[in-house]
């Protein structure tokens, strides 16, 4: 896969399909300790121990349309090829937390990609879920919460096309540090 956003969207989609109400995506780059940390936390239906033990196996999936599930398998592969670390903790009916630690300057780490677009797709996939995005790069912090946007919008749906496009741009600006 071409960028980190693509890997994260796979995990976020898993969270969306797990009937979550709240999903937190935390991306933190610390150049001082050369670390890229990604945490995705949801309050969905979680996994039992058996499923959790096999979750990185590409032949593990709960879907019915095909027998292959590649999202977590790809992420595990990324961690393997970049000398990183993937930890998934899950409790049934409580939620799942996925933690990825990667050495930030590794040759084989793809670029971060379009995080705004990634969040836009997730909100579009299920507008009822509340998403939080936290992006930290050394001193710079950007925080985005769909709850605050929904408050601002009132009765207008968050998945209106022009609002989704605004969210995409707003997040990408915030990540670059251009928001006032």
């Amino acid at each position: 896969m071409q960028d980190i956003a693509m890997y994260i969207i796979e995990i976020l989609m898993n969270s969306i399909y797990a009937n979550s109400n709240n999903i937190i995506c935390h991306i933190e780059i610390k150049t001082s300790i050369n670390q890229l940390l990604i945490i995705i936390e949801d309050d969905g239906k979680g996994m039992n121990d058996e499923l959790l033990a096999n979750v990185t196996n590409p032949f593990t999936t709960t879907r019915k349309t095909r027998k292959i599930g590649l999202g977590v398998a790809f992420l595990q592969h990324l961690c393997d090829q970049c000398n990183g670390d993937l930890t998934i903790k899950s409790k049934e009916n409580i939620g799942t937390i996925t933690v990825v630690k990667l050495p930030y300057d590794h040759w084989d780490i793809p670029p971060l990609g379009n995080i705004g677009q990634m969040m836009m797709f997730c909100i579009q996939a299920n507008a009822d879920i509340d998403f939080i995005l936290q992006y930290i790069k050394d001193e710079h912090t950007f925080f985005f919460d769909t709850k605050l946007i929904k408050q601002e919008l009132g009765e207008v749906n968050i998945d209106e096309p022009d609002i989704l496009l605004w969210i995409k741009e707003y997040i990408n600006q915030g990540i670059k540090g251009e928001n006032l």
Partner: peptide, 19 residues
């Protein structure tokens, strides 16, 4: 530049559209 002010304008626009 996208600001939170835009969001208010878009909200009003969207409300008109819904009608």
């Amino acid at each position: 530049m996208k600001s939170l002010e835009d969001l208010k304008k878009m909200r009003e626009k969207a409300l008109k559209k819904v009608e």
